[in-house]
Design a protein around this nucleic acid. Structure first.
Lengths: 150, 150
DNA sequence: GAAGATTGAAGACTCAATCTTT
DNA sequence: AAAGATTGAGTCTTCAATCTTC
């Protein structure tokens, strides 16, 4: 049989799964309860609010938001229906589209951001020392260098 | 405005999201391609194979598998349809049910385990030093003490 | 033919309501 | 009344196929 995981390996791996599940569930629930905004929608608004002109290509956005292309299409559909973003044709390439954040979208993002940041601090960052955080960041860089995909 | 995240905090938090997404997607794809077994199903088989008598209460299993009760009910439905596990009445408490792994389930698990372990090593553990792994394990313990829920 | 984006169909998950037993 | 488990309805996601433009 393939060598099983030892205690240290198991703790490192299973902990990642447990912590991710617990944190994303709780953060998603808080954003929905206080702002009617799922975590996935918040993340797209964040990416757009941080972009020059408040817009990004659909496929770029899919990669950054860790979603499939079709998954992003549906999510943008929902956000467009809510009036938080809008689609714009890409002038240089008629195949392409931008997703652009609207004024309503910026308002919703500004309101939701403190909730999210407080949550991330309370559930995650506040429980870690600075050197814990540095160690985590270094580990992530070794696992996925340069923030690349696999 | 609420204080934004600094570079270190952002790297620690965003890295967790990126690494989790990339790893679970790839591990799930490998298990499906080689054994027709989604990662969530593999995890339930693992929990049962490791249990005395190869069985666990439904609600215990839901908590361990990081799923809602109803989510686990559906997953057990699928695994029962595939013949990999079966439901058994709980003798002490007529409200309760056990999910029990079948001989076919044990075979499927034994075949899939090397694929999964190799994947976890290749994508995650092999890219980290022993002290990285120890640091991660310590961090998880601080974020979710005792492997508890929130 | 390949890339950007969308659609149809299906899978998987959650919440709230329900049923049964304690 | 509370706990274990399931169901119905709705949401979110993906894969494969499709359409359009490069």
């Amino acid at each position: 049989v393939t060598e099983l995981l030892n205690r240290r390996e198991l703790a490192a791996w299973q902990g990642l799964l447990r912590v991710h599940a617990a944190l994303t569930q709780e953060l998603d629930a808080e954003l929905r309860a206080e702002h009617g905004l799922p975590l996935s929608s918040y993340e797209v608004l964040l990416l757009l609010a941080d972009s020059p002109d408040g817009q990004r290509r659909m496929s770029e956005l899919a990669a950054s938001a860790l979603l499939s292309r079709s998954g992003l299409t549906r999510l943008v559909d929902r956000l467009e229906r809510s009036g938080l973003i809008e689609r714009r044709r890409c002038p240089d390439d008629a195949r392409g589209w931008f997703a652009a954040i609207t004024p309503d979208g910026r308002r919703a993002f500004r309101r939701a951001r403190p909730t999210h940041l407080r949550g991330v601090r309370r559930l995650f960052l506040d429980r870690l020392s600075n050197s814990d955080q540095t160690a985590l960041a270094a580990a992530w860089e070794r696992v996925l260098p340069g923030g690349s995909a696999l």
